[in-house]
Design a protein around this nucleic acid. Sequence first.
RNA 1: GCGGGCGUCGCCAAGUGGUUAAGGCAGUGGCUUGUGGCGCCGCUAUUCGGGGGUUCGAAUCCCCUCGCUCGCCCCA
Length: 429
Amino acid sequence: MDNFKNLRGTVDLLPDQLIKWQNVEKLILEQLFRASVKEIRTPILEMTELFMRGIGEGTDVVSKEMYTFLDRGERSCTLRPEGTASVARALIQNGISTKPSQKLWYMGPMFRYERPQAGRQRQFHQLGVEFIGYESVRSDIEIITLAWDILDKLGIKELNLEINTLGDDIDRSNFQKAFLKWLEVNKNSLDLDSQKRIDKNPLRILDTKNVQTKQILEDAPKLFDFLSKKSLERYINIKEKLKLLKIPFIENSSLVRGLDYYTHTAFEITSGLLGSQATVCGGGRYDNLISQMGGTETPAIGFAIGLERLILLSGKDLEKSRDTDIYIVNKGFNAETLAMDLSRKLRNFDLKTELDVSGASFSKQFKKANKIKSKSIIVIGDDEASKREFVIRLFNNEISEDQQETISIEDNIKLEKWLKSNLLLDLKL
RNA sequence: GCGGGCGUCGCCAAGUGGUUAAGGCAGUGGCUUGUGGCGCCGCUAUUCGGGGGUUCGAAUCCCCUCGCUCGCCCCA
């Protein structure tokens, strides 16, 4: 019989890899805490309609990438392809006012049915941050700098921040009218993909990768020319502030992004080190999403970072884990009982300990302790148990019995003193 | 959904039609039942992703299939 395999596009994260994940997540969480961003957790499963309306039916994500199925009650359910729609839903549904504005983050798995490749999986993980109820230029800047600083804190270099503005819905519909008119005339010069988008999602034609279409588009109307004075000023203001803060960015007028809900600011952070899936962070303003979903008019802006890609970019120093401080070698009925007691006692200290529960020979247990590079060992055998004591010893580079010390089971003071002078001191340095 | 590359042990790999499927790493047992690192000696793929075919004979050739991978589209 064949063994079971994971589904295509999903991966097992194994213990050794998770050290890096945990280190990365820890740094992120600290950064978010310091910026007073609060966590929100929403279900991974939502009704399909939420994403169709929230993200937009014309988008690639909704039209061809969702994991959708009928549950036993014949309801159409979808594994979330992104987090923003769920957060918006949760706020509206729970009557959480955005009057005192909300700064929220979430982290977890997302699902998109695509062909896997480097930096792309069907189940992947995102960290998302949403500032809800904020419309100031400063909130745009703070979102961008927050994303930028998280990447920076992780020591990631060679990043590019690209920004653009999409205007508000009026700007956009004005532009769209003109653009559609132009498209009608030039339809036959476009590549097939772009032609298909004319009805479904014309704005997306703007960031086609087709070289020929790109050239032709140079003569097309520009969204930029349809921005209202207010929208334009807003954008200029953002660029100025980024300059003042010395956040390097490049303007990319074809940056549209694949989700319908964006307005005004759109941005992406990419890295050349990622191969063809270069985007590590994408975000933008979505002032209409919440009202479209039945909430009150609420401006908002957010971003999402792809954790797999982030991990790929993060340095080797985050792969290191702390070595075991004490390995407890024990054998014999009475000894094993004492060892368990001692093991529990040791967990009251900020130490990483491991109790050998294999029952293997002493020699095996020593080998194990050595193999995992334990900094020290405790030995309890029948000899020690009968005297109610144990032997503790630093496991240095050289084998020498001189450093060994015998401590009575009850002598907590001596134990603590030994730990402080041999193990705990190192930690503080 | 569409292209290209690839599938031999947990990992890295030799083998390109002749029969005993090298080797290394890891794992495991022992030398060495209570004191580790080194060393030495064992063990670890009836089988080459799966199925079918060609052949006296296939991991090696052919067909199908599955999977992985890179890229396109798009995104995190």
